[in-house]
C-alpha cells in the first residue's frame, strides 16, 4: 500500500512542504547512531518486546528509546511490524514477552485506556471518527477526567455543567486551529477523509497528551491538506509534546522528523538523523533487499515502488 501523495495524478510536482521552516532538534542520542542507541532524555523505552502470530514473528525489538520533545518517525517497508509495535506500545495488543516504560513507568500489561490516561494518545491508520456523533461531541469525548462520565453523576447536570462548558470552549479553540469550527454541529461521518484525520488529531489533543502517536497521518490525505497536517504536527512539538509517527511518505519524514527509526522484518535495523539514516546500507537493504533472492520479473510492481521511493530520497539529497 503506497501512501505516497506524490503519485497522485493531480498532485503538484513539488512535494508538499510545511509552510513554516521546521526547526530540527539535534543532539538527541548518546554515542553512535546505531539501532537501539541510548537517548539523552528518552520518553519511551522498549526492552526485548516480541510478538509473534503463530510461526511469524511480527515484532522483535531488542532495545529502543524514543527521545522526548522531538518528532520521531518510524519507517520501514510493508510488513515491517510498525503498526504492530504501535499496537503493543499503546496496549491494543499484548506482546509474548518484553517490557516497556513510558515516562519512567512500566506499561507492560496495562490496558489501552489506562495507557491513554497516562498521556500517551494514539491515532489510527484507518481513521476512527465517530460517524454518528457530531464533530463537537467527538472533541468532547477526548477530554480527560470528566465528572459527568459517571452514570449517577450524569443524572445531576449541575455537577458537570461548568466542566462541560470549559471543555466546550477548549474544543472550539482546537477546532478553530484545525479549521473545523464551521463543521462543529455536523456528523463526523459527513467530513472528508482528510478532515477526519484532522479531527482525530484535534480530538487526541483534547486530553493534553505528552506523547502523541500518529499511525500514518498522511495516508489518503490530499496534498493541500497534507501541508496543513504537517504544520499541525510541527506545532505539537513547539507546544512541548513528543511525536512518534509511522509514515510511508519519505518527503514528509525528511522534512519534519528529528529522528528516524527504521524497522524491517520486526526488528529495528537503523536509527539516526533523517538525512544520514537514508544513506545507511541497512536501510537500502531493508527497502530493496526483500526481493534479492527472487527473480525480478516476478513482482515488478512491488520492486519498483521501493526503488522509486529510495531514488526519490537520494534525489532529494542532491
Amino acid at each position: 500500500m503506497s501512501a505516497n501523495a506524490g503519485l497522485d495524478p493531480v498532485a503538484p510536482l513539488e512535494p508538499p512542504v510545511p509552510t513554516q521552516k521546521p526547526i530540527k532538534t539535534t543532539g538527541l542520542h548518546v554515542g553512535d547512531a546505531e539501532p537501539g542507541c541510548r537517548k539523552v532524555d528518552p520518553i519511551l523505552v522498549v526492552d526485548k518486546v516480541r510478538r509473534s502470530f503463530g510461526g511469524l514473528t511480527a515484532v522483535d525489538v531488542d532495545h529502543l528509546e524514543v527521545p522526548r520533545g522531538a518528532i520521531t518517525a518510524l519507517i520501514g517497508p510493508n510488513g515491517a511490524g510498525k503498526t504492530t509495535l504501535f499496537n503493543l506500545l499503546t496496549g491494543f495488543d499484548k506482546p509474548n514477552d518484553g517490557k516497556w516504560m513510558f515516562d519512567g513507568r512500566s506499561l507492560a500489561g496495562m490496558p489501552a485506556y489506562r495507557v491513554a490516561r497516562m498521556g500517551q494518545i494514539r491515532t489510527f491508520q484507518l481513521t476512527k471518527a465517530l460517524g454518528l456523533l457530531s464533530v463537537m461531541d467527538n472533541m468532547l469525548l477526548g477530554a480527560k477526567g470528566q465528572t459527568g462520565e459517571n452514570m449517577f453523576r450524569a443524572l445531576l447536570p449541575f455537577l458537570w455543567r461548568t466542566q462541560e462548558e470549559a471543555n466546550r470552549a477548549k474544543a472550539l479553540d482546537l477546532l478553530t486551529r484545525f479549521k473545523l469550527d464551521t463543521k462543529k454541529d455536523d456528523y463526523a461521518a459527513s467530513l472528508s477523509g482528510g478532515q477526519r484525520k484532522l479531527l482525530e488529531m484535534a480530538r487526541a489533543l483534547m486530553s493534553d497528551p505528552t506523547l502523541v502517536m500518529l499511525d500514518e497521518p498522511m495516508a489518503g490525505v490530499n496534498p493541500a491538506l497534507t501541508q496543513s497536517l504537517l504544520d499541525h504536527i510541527l506545532n505539537l512539538k513547539s507546544q512541548g509534546m513528543t511525536v512518534l509517527f509511522v509514515e510511508h511518505d519519505m518527503h514528509m519524514v525528511r522534512h519534519i522528523a528529528d529522528w528516524v527509526i527504521v524497522m524491517a522484518e520486526g526488528k529495528v535495523v537503523a536509527e539516526g538523523d533523517p538525512h544520514e539514516v537514508m544513506k545507511n546500507p541497512a536501510v537500502i537493504d531493508a527497502y530493496l533487499g526483500q526481493h534479492h533472492d527472487e527473480d525480478i520479473g516476478q513482482d515488478p510492481g512491488a520492486e519498483t515502488e521501493h526503488v522509486s521511493a529510495i531514488k526519490e530520497l537520494l534525489d532529494d539529497e542532491r
Binding site: 499503546t90 491494543f92 490496558p111 489501552a112 485506556y113 489506562r114 491513554a116 490516561r117 494518545i121 494514539r122 491515532t123 489510527f124 476512527k128 471518527a129 465517530l130 460517524g131 454518528l132 456523533l133 461531541d137 467527538n138 469525548l141 477526548g142 480527560k144 482525530e200 480530538r203 487526541a204 483534547m206 486530553s207
Partner: peptide, 14 residues
Amino acid sequence: KGIREDEDAVRALG
C-alpha cells in the same frame, strides 16, 4: 454512543 460508533477509538481516548 461513542462505543456504538467505534469502541477502539473510545478506548484510545482513555
